[in-house]
């Protein structure tokens, strides 16, 4: 169970060990997460607060997944791949979170995932709204508790109440891309529907956040 997420924020200069423990821990977590338990499997937890906590930790398998965190970076540069390395080429978020003038997300990312015949990269991800989460929605480097508080805070979640938050998590198609990321990319665990149910149940149980 993930109780704390620490993501690599930088790879230090001179050492091959640089990407060591931080990113590695995150990758292991992603791999180990496997499937997503349905919300119904949490009903055995009688205490609503404990159930809410457990539900959010389950949701954390998705939230902390590279498919999600890579586009919720703490800097102006997205991350890339299961190893969550800084995006190559070194693109920046730009004023509208859609890239810099002359090198916008759409320079490389189309409306759909594009399969490639090369052996180095199997597909280029795509979506009609491909963009970065605004900087106030950054998840990279934060604990699950911090992310939880953040996504409930309208000042840091794009002005959403809990219902709107559920709608975003359960039905936004860019969020949904995380489960259909194209060849060569591990999808987020479970399905968006199961994830949506977990978020719904978490809200219904008081939207309790893990500590720390």
């Amino acid at each position: 169970m993930i109780s704390r997420i620490i993501l690599a924020t930088a790879v230090a200069a001179t050492s091959a060990l640089a990407m060591g423990s931080f990113a590695q821990g995150q990758q292991d977590a992603a791999k180990a997460s496997g499937d997503l338990r349905p919300a119904s499997s949490f009903t055995s937890i009688g205490d609503p607060t404990q159930r809410s906590l457990a539900l959010f930790e389950e949701a954390g398998k998705v939230i902390a997944h590279p498919r999600c965190v890579n586009c919720h970076p703490a800097s102006d540069r997205p991350l890339q791949g299961n190893a969550m390395k800084p995006h190559q080429p070194p693109v920046v978020r730009g004023a509208a979170n859609m890239g810099a003038p002359g090198l916008q997300c759409t320079t490389c990312h189309g409306e759909k995932n594009t399969p490639l015949v090369t052996t180095s990269i199997r597909s280029v991800p795509g979506h009609p709204q491909w963009h970065l989460a605004p900087i106030e929605m950054a998840w990279e480097g934060k604990s699950l508790g911090q992310i939880c508080e953040q996504i409930k805070d309208p000042a840091r979640n794009g002005g959403k109440d809990l219902a709107a938050l559920h709608e975003h998590m359960a039905h936004d198609s860019l969020v949904g891309w995380g489960w259909t990321p194209g060849d060569g990319r591990d999808p987020a665990p479970g399905t968006q529907a199961v994830f949506g149910e977990i978020i719904k149940a978490w809200i219904a149980t008081g939207a309790v956040c893990p500590k720390g």
Partner: peptide
């Protein structure tokens, strides 16, 4: 103060 012992300076493809 660090003397480089191995190139490249930045390993692991990206930094």
């Amino acid at each position: 103060g660090e003397a480089v012992a191995q190139l490249p300076f930045v390993r692991g493809g990206t930094a």
